[in-house]
Design a protein around this nucleic acid. Sequence first.
RNA 1: UCCCCAGUAGCUCAGUCGGCAGAGCAGGUGGCUGUUAACCACCGUGUCCGUGGUUCGAGUCCGCGCUGGGGAGCCA
Length: 460
Amino acid sequence: MKRTRIITLLASDHALDNVLIKGWVKTRRDAKDFSFIEVNDGSCLQNIQVVADQGLANFEAIKKLSTGSAIAVEGIMRPSPGKGQKWEVHAASAVIISVAGDDYPLQKKRHTDEFLRTISHLRPRTNKYGAAFRIRSKLSYAIHRFFQERGFAYIHTPILTGSDCEGAGELFQVTALNLENPPKTAGKIDYSQDFFGRPANLTVSGQLEAEMFALALGDVYTFGPTFRAENSNTSRHAAEFWMVEPEMAFCDLSDDMDLAETFVRHLVTYALDHCREDLSLFAEFVDKTLMDTLETVATKSFIRVPYTEALAILNRSGQHFNFEVSFGTDLQTEHERYLAETHFKQPVIIYDYPRTLKPFYMRVNDDGKTVAAMDVIVPRIGEIIGGSQREERLDVLKGRMAETGVPPKDLWWYLDSRRFGSVPHSGFGLGFERLIMLVTGISNIRDVIPFPRTPGNIEF
RNA sequence: UCCCCAGUAGCUCAGUCGGCAGAGCAGGUGGCUGUUAACCACCGUGUCCGUGGUUCGAGUCCGCGCUGGGGAGCCA
């Protein structure tokens, strides 16, 4: 007999004569002649109540079942006379698959996120983390569906990269050399003897490679891990995180912003439509304002303000900021939060930033002072998307590389794309974990990725 | 990397003015009960983060370090 998932059983509109469930004991309560066992199999947030009575051959062993133990129960699913659940399974047989010892760290009570991080291998068994990772999976699927339905091709850009000039933070170097005793010439490490014959790193972005494919297949996207060796210790940064990077040919900044907005609103709507039960946990226990926030993101169009207009809003706000703003200064977290949380109270797209603040590949605007860049700022999280129209003019691009100190010879292939059939194109990067934070209300990035990597932390 | 806060039982925390180490939950035993984070009674639990110092005496005060959290920078 095949097991039926609990999510399927609970959705049934009629009793079932013979069912088999397999799962883990969440909690157990004893009554006079039987034991109530709450079983969860991870298919959904809810447990199913199993009623095990003294007619079972192994009833004495069943009564000793501890939280975390695994069982298989065969029996009849029928309406529950008790309050709190529609169905319950009366066990005709209950096989104990394995017993969790009394040192099982997860108790029938709420644990702190900090403690659960120390047992990342067990935390998906909790209600909260189970729900978070089911949502993460659903949204991954929604991302692929969103792009595939719109004719985008999924591109697997390399994880290992030879270019060290992608301009997005510190890199993790990758080597096959013996670090205890590396080969040297003239006192310097001889990378010609390394695996690739030159230094290599983990990618910080698939953008440059994705651009090559946008200029061939039209509309493309990437969805994969990226790595930053920044010594960042915040609730919004991880050394390994997942990024979604669409790239579109024949697309300007306005089209790019349109897609970014449609994308975020679509994903939030998808979560509201497909993750209701799991979201309800977060709305109740994690962030009471979650549903309002998600409804706002899903239904209201995003405000779009040029950088200079954002400065004007900040300067006439009467608000005290620790950092003053004027043209050429980067917006600090306090400014972004003021705009998204206090002034507009909804997602905001800020665009046309000073060229001095942005990397070489962003397209220079006609004013010569700004570039066609945009950031999507959402309440509570801050920047969730960063993107731009790319500089398609070869001479301007070369000028920008010189200006920002990027050596053209390392990116000869990138420059080639501007030499042969260059067209206006645009793209952006969405931080997948930040999206999950937005959707769940979870406030620390370490709690939305299965096994987080942060400075000094690579256990598991 | 910088600023601030914290570290006491398996977990969450209290510990006053420097004077014998505490509670709730979890766990164990027994009872009760179609139960709902069940309930009642009883029982056990400590490198007070580490290290050096001040003191008759340090969980408590001081220095250094480690770990965790919040904030900032960097960014997604």
